[in-house]
């Protein structure tokens, strides 16, 4: 059940892409939910953390594009910077999980998340400055858009993502990162 084959990674990636569309529907009806709660970020992080960078990258592209094609949310005009942001999240989260091994699942997750979030938001800001608002984009707008408005989203990401991953491990749907309990038990 818990071995991560490439087929399983592919299907989990597919599910995460589908969730990029489904989870924001939960937040539907709350004004500006998208920019405040960033619900679409969660599945992308999950995909990167669990399946690795390549799947995270695909999820970061396909998630927002499919959602946009089906509902018009996010508006296509927002896609370039959104895709950049999410691609970085998926990619960096996956790479960090490969690089960081502290023997503590939570710590690994938090380190990977922090690095991915910081890099993703910066990248999105750069893309936005480059193409979207053509020279009118300022540091203040970046701070207001990516740091202040979205703080509840950042909070959600920090609390939710590790809890979800731990729950998935408990439910034996993904393998434990450090299956040391059994080994210690045997010694």
């Amino acid at each position: 059940m818990s071995e991560m084959t490439s087929v399983k990674k592919s299907i989990i990636c597919a599910v995460c892409i589908a969730l990029c569309y489904v989870i924001p529907l939960f937040f539907h009806g709350i004004q500006n939910a998208g920019s405040i709660f960033c619900p679409m970020h969660i599945p992308v992080f999950m995909c990167g953390l669990i399946c690795g960078w390549s799947y995270g990258l695909l999820c970061g592209i396909a998630g927002p594009v499919i959602s946009s094609a089906l509902t018009g949310m996010p508006p296509i005009a927002y896609l370039p910077n959104m895709v950049t942001e999410l691609v970085i999240y998926g990619l960096v989260a996956g790479l960090m999980m490969k690089l960081v091994h502290t023997k503590n699942t939570y710590l690994d997750l938090y380190i990977s998340l922090v690095v991915a979030i910081v890099l993703g938001r910066i990248a999105a800001g750069i893309v936005r400055a480059l193409i979207f608002t053509q020279g009118t984009y300022s540091m203040a707008m970046w701070v207001s858009g990516y740091v202040i408005t979205s703080w509840p989203g950042t909070l959600i990401q920090f609390i939710f993502i590790p809890s979800i991953i731990m729950a998935l491990m408990k439910g034996r749907l993904i393998p434990e990162r450090y299956p040391k309990l059994q080994i210690e038990g045997r010694n």
């Binding site: 489904v22 939960f26 939710f160 979800i164």
Partner: peptide
């Protein structure tokens, strides 16, 4: 949102697990 999102992930990963198997 936690009581919504955690079960949603659990059940969709369960589906993913079943399908991939």
């Amino acid at each position: 949102m936690l009581p919504m999102i955690v079960p949603l992930f659990l059940s969709s990963f369960k589906r993913a697990d079943e399908l991939s198997m």
